[in-house]
Design a protein around this nucleic acid. Structure first.
Lengths: 231, 231
DNA sequence: TAGCTCAGTTGGTTAGAGCAGCTGACTCTT
DNA sequence: AAGAGTCAGCTGCTCTAACCAACTGAGCTA
C-alpha cells in the first residue's frame, strides 16, 4: 500500500504535467486527496525525496524535484564504500565504468566540439595549470569535474552529461573518503591538455588513447596506494 | 536531522561490515540506538529503502538491501516519462545514452568474450529466432535483455553489467508504457546475430557498426511512431 | 518609509494505540 | 509417533493527536 502511495503521487506529477520546481499539494491536502494519514503521506514523500522526484522545504512547501542524477551518485557512492570495506575492488570497478563510458563517448565527440566549448575547455586546462603551479600544488576537484562535464556537452544530450557527472561525483567522494591518493599535478595537466588537443583536431584514435592514458594514470595511483582496504 | 538519521544507519551498515541480506536492528532497537521516535526511524528507513540500501519485510524484519541499480532504473524511468509528457525528447536521450555506452563497451569486448558466454549468446539468438517464427512473432523482452547483459559479462565488471541492465530496464519500461513501437522480429534477430558474429571474430570496427546499426534501427522505429507525445 | 513583530501556514517530531504478516512452539488428531 | 492445526510472540504498518520549528506576509511601530 505504501508503495502504491508513491505511485499515486508520481502519477499526480505526470498527469498534471508538473515541471521541476512546481509546488505540490501540502501534507494535509495530500492526506485528503489520497485518503491516508499524515504519517503515510510523509513516508511516501520521504521515499520520493530520496529518489530526487520530490523536494521538501521546511516551513515552505513540497515541490517537484530536479530529477537529477544526484541520488544515483549517492547510491553508487554508498554501494562502493560498503563494497570496499568488505574487501571488494568496488572502487576500481567504478573507475572502469567511468573509463569505459568516456572512452566510448570521446570517439563520437572528436572533431565535433563547438568552438565555445573548446574555448571553455582551454580556460579550464589553463586554470588547472595555474592551480598546479600554486603553493599547495593540487588541481582542484571542481576544475577536473568541470572539464569532463564541459567536454561532453557538445554531444547535445543533457542526460548523458548528467550521468557522467554522477559517475564522477560518486568516484570522487569515495576516493576522498577512503583512500588518500596523492596527485601528480603535472601529469594531470598534461593529460587533460592532450585530451583537449586530440578532440580539437578530430583524431579519434588519439582521443581514445588520451582518455585511456588519463584513466590509466588514475588507476595506477589507485592500485599503488590502495593496499589496505580496512582503513 | 532526518538526513542525519539516514547517514547514521548507513554508517551502521558500513561500520559493522554488513553484507547485503544481513539483518538490521528492529525499529524499537533503532529508536533506542539513535534516540529518536519510531516515526523518524521509519521515515529514514523508507528513504533508504527507496535507494535500495535497505530492504523491509513486513512481519519479518529489516535487512541490508541488495544495493542493486534497480532504484536508478526506477528514477531514470520516471524522469524520462515526466520529461516525455512535457514534450521533451527524453526517451531519445535515454536511447542515445544506451547507444553511447554500448558502443564504447563493445570495442573493448571484441575478441575477448569467453567461450561459455559465446555459447550462451548463441542460444539466446537462437531463442530469438524461435520466438520470431512463433505465432505471435515477437521477440520476448527478457531475451533481448539477457543478450545485452550476457554480452558484457565478459568484461569482468559486475557493476558495468548492472548499470547497462538498469539503462535497458528504464528504456524498456518507458517504451512499453508510452509508445507502442512495432517490432520487426526479422531485423532484430539479424542484428543480434551480426553483433555476436562480429564480437566473436574480434573485429572491433565491425562490432561497433553492428551495435550502431542495431540502435539506429530502434531509433528509427521510435522517431517514426513517436509523433504524439501527449498520448 | 523602514524596520519589527506577530499570526498563520507548512513541514518536523513525538507519543500511544491498534492492525497485519510471519515464525515457531505447542497441542490435538490420526 | 507423526502430522496438521492453533495460538502466542515477534516484526513491521497505519492511524490519531498534539506540539515544535521554519518560513511568509500583513500589520504595526518608530
Amino acid at each position: 500500500m505504501a508503495r502504491d502511495l508513491q505511485e499515486q503521487i508520481k502519477k499526480l506529477i505526470v498527469d498534471r504535467r508538473l515541471p521541476p520546481g512546481a509546488s505540490l499539494p501540502t501534507e494535509p491536502e495530500l492526506m485528503e486527496l489520497l485518503g491516508v494519514s499524515r504519517n503515510s503521506v510523509r513516508e511516501a514523500l520521504k521515499a520520493l525525496q530520496a529518489m530526487g522526484i520530490v523536494e521538501i522545504r521546511h516551513g515552505f512547501g513540497t515541490y517537484v524535484g530536479p530529477m537529477s542524477m544526484a541520488p544515483m551518485a549517492e547510491g553508487l557512492a554508498f554501494r562502493t564504500v560498503a563494497g570496499h570495506y568488505r574487501g571488494e575492488d568496488s572502487l576500481l570497478q567504478l573507475l572502469e565504468l567511468r573509463e569505459a563510458v568516456e572512452t566510448g563517448l570521446v570517439a563520437r565527440l572528436a572533431g565535433r566540439v563547438p568552438d565555445a566549448d573548446l574555448a571553455e575547455l582551454d580556460a579550464l586546462v589553463g586554470q588547472m595549470e595555474k592551480e598546479a603551479a600554486s603553493p599547495d600544488g593540487t588541481v582542484a576537484a571542481a576544475t577536473d569535474r568541470a572539464f569532463h562535464a564541459t567536454l561532453y556537452r557538445g554531444l547535445g544530450n543533457p542526460l548523458l552529461v548528467e550521468v557522467m557527472e554522477a559517475f564522477w561525483e560518486a568516484f570522487h567522494r569515495v576516493r576522498t573518503d577512503l583512500v588518500d591518493v596523492p596527485q601528480d599535478p603535472g601529469v594531470t595537466c598534461r593529460q587533460h591538455r592532450e585530451i583537449l588537443d586530440a578532440v580539437r583536431s578530430g583524431e579519434v584514435i588519439r582521443a581514445e588513447r588520451a582518455i585511456r592514458d588519463h584513466f590509466g594514470n588514475i588507476r595506477l595511483r589507485l592500485t599503488a596506494t590502495d593496499r589496505n582496504p580496512t582503513a
